[in-house]
């Protein structure tokens, strides 16, 4: 049972770390601000979920599990708000989203 929990938590942690690096690579590979925002939201959602769940499986007391759950909840509540706020003020300051087909953009 103990080994099973350990293996499960390592899988979660490794997958979370890989997703985090993927999001960071996305910050470089995508062409403009709005597409980078999508890449950053990968690191904010699934990567965070997996790492915190992996840590919860390793935690040694109930108090710690509850506190890690609170960290997860606070990140899950605040990250869409800050992402929307970033996108909105970027749009209002006149940043144009990069679009694939230039013909449709002009018409």
């Amino acid at each position: 049972m103990d080994i099973f929990l350990n293996v499960l938590s390592w899988i979660c942690l490794l997958a979370g770390g890989f997703l985090g690096i993927t999001g960071a690579v996305g910050l470089f590979r995508f062409p403009d601000f709005f597409t980078r925002l999508h890449a950053a939201s990968v690191t904010d959602t699934l990567s965070t979920f997996l790492i915190i769940i992996g840590l919860m499986l390793q935690a040694n007391s109930l108090m710690m599990i509850i506190k890690l759950l609170l960290v997860l909840l606070i990140i899950a509540y605040t990250s869409p708000t800050s992402a929307h706020s970033l996108a909105k003020s970027a749009l209002h300051s006149g940043l144009k989203p990069f679009l694939k087909d230039k013909e449709n953009q002009n018409s």
Partner: peptide
């Protein structure tokens, strides 16, 4: 806005790093 986004990502990762450290140290 790219800079603010990057700083936001660094902040989220700092939270995760602190959680990992506290579980490693075994202190709630």
């Amino acid at each position: 806005y790219d800079r603010i986004l990057a700083v936001n990502v660094v902040g989220t990762k700092t939270v995760l790093l602190l959680s990992v450290l506290s579980v490693t140290a075994g202190r709630g």
